[in-house]
C-alpha cells in the first residue's frame, strides 16, 4: 500500500505527529513506569539521591509487606465484591434500557435517553450525607451491596450511552428477520441482539468494573470498619502520617492497579471496535 506523493508541509506534519505522540506516550506512561520501578527498588535507592532510569537492584520486600502486613488482600476482596456486583448490575440494567430505547417507541423515550446523561449534573457530594443516613438505617454500611448500588448509579449513564449508540448501529432488519423466522421478542433479543452487541457489552462490563474499583468517595464514607475498606481507601490510608513508606505505598498501588490492567488488556484483546463504534454515533 504505497502512499500518494505528499507535499513538504505534510511531511513535516507527519514528523511532528510522531514526535508529539512519542511525547504524549511518555507523559502518560512514564509516571506509571516510575511507580512500578519505585516499588521494586530497595529503600536505600528510593531515598537515595541518584536518579535511575533502570533500577540497579530489584527487591520484592515491599510487595511482601504490602500483601501480608496491612490487610491489602482483604480490601482487594472487598473491592472485588463491589466491582463484580457493579459490573453485573450495570451491564444488565444498561442493556435492557438501551434495548428499550432503541427498539421500542413509547412516550417519553427521547427524554429518558437524554435525561440519563444529565444525572452527571448532580453533585455527588450532596449525596454522601443522605446516603450515609439511608444505608445506616438499613444496616447496609460496610456492605458491598451498598457500594454496588452506588457504583452502578455512577456508571450507568455513561454505559447506557455507549450501549445505546452501539445498538442504534445494529440494523433493525437483523431482529426483524429473526421474528419473521419465528422468534419471539425475547428470542430475537437473545439470538440476534446480544451476540451482535457483544463488543459493546463487554466494553461496558469492564468499564463498570473499572469505575467501581477506582471509586473513592462513597467507599470512604460508607465503610467505617477498616476490615471492609475497599482498595482505594486502604491505599490512601497508607499515605497518612509523617513517615510515609513509599516503597510499601507504591507496591500496594501496583497491586491495586494490576487487576484493572489485566481486565483492560483482556477487553482490548477481545475488541477494538466496542467503544469506538459505540461512541461514534453521537
Amino acid at each position: 500500500m504505497s502512499a500518494p506523493p505528499v507535499s513538504r508541509s505534510r511531511r513535516i506534519a507527519n514528523a511532528v505527529r510522531y514526535v508529539y505522540l512519542a511525547i504524549v506516550a511518555l507523559v502518560f506512561i512514564l509516571p506509571f513506569y516510575w511507580l512500578v520501578k519505585t516499588s521494586l527498588q530497595p529503600n536505600d535507592v528510593i531515598y537515595g539521591s541518584d536518579l535511575h532510569l533502570v533500577p540497579p537492584t530489584i527487591t520484592f520486600t515491599h510487595y511482601q509487606s504490602a500483601l501480608t502486613e496491612v490487610g491489602l488482600v482483604g480490601s482487594i476482596v472487598n473491592s472485588l465484591l463491589a466491582a463484580v456486583g457493579t459490573m453485573v448490575l450495570t451491564t444488565v440494567v444498561a442493556l435492557l434500557a438501551a434495548y428499550g430505547i432503541t427498539r421500542y417507541v413509547f412516550p417519553g423515550r427521547r427524554t429518558v435517553a437524554r435525561l440519563v446523561l444529565l444525572t452527571y449534573m448532580f453533585p455527588n457530594t450532596a449525596l454522601i450525607v443522605p446516603m450515609y443516613g439511608m444505608f445506616a438505617a438499613y444496616g447496609l454500611l460496610n456492605n458491598p451491596v451498598a457500594l454496588t448500588l452506588l457504583h452502578s448509579m455512577l456508571a450507568l449513564p455513561f454505559c447506557l450511552w455507549i450501549l445505546q449508540s452501539y445498538l442504534e448501529s445494529i440494523p433493525r432488519e437483523l431482529e426483524e428477520a429473526a421474528k419473521v423466522e419465528g422468534a419471539t421478542e425475547f428470542g430475537a433479543f437473545r439470538h440476534v441482539t446480544v451476540p451482535q452487541a457483544m463488543p459493546a457489552i463487554v466494553a461496558v462490563a469492564i468499564l463498570a468494573f473499572i469505575i467501581s474499583w477506582g471509586e473513592y468517595m462513597f467507599a470512604y464514607i460508607l465503610t467505617t470498619n477498616s476490615a471492609k475498606f475497599t482498595v482505594p481507601v486502604k491505599v490512601t490510608q497508607l499515605l497518612g502520617g509523617y513517615q510515609v513508606d513509599w516503597g510499601l505505598l507504591t507496591a500496594a498501588s501496583v497491586v491495586v492497579v494490576l487487576p484493572v490492567l489485566a481486565l483492560f488488556w483482556l477487553m482490548v484483546k477481545y475488541l477494538g471496535k466496542g467503544i469506538a463504534k459505540g461512541t461514534g454515533a453521537i
Partner: peptide
C-alpha cells in the same frame, strides 16, 4: 410476524454474521 406462515428476504439481506 412469527405466527404468519411466511418468510422475508430483506434489502440488506439481514444475515447474521455471528
Amino acid at each position: 410476524a412469527r405466527e404468519r406462515d411466511l418468510s422475508m428476504v430483506f434489502q440488506n439481506l439481514a444475515l447474521w454474521d455471528h
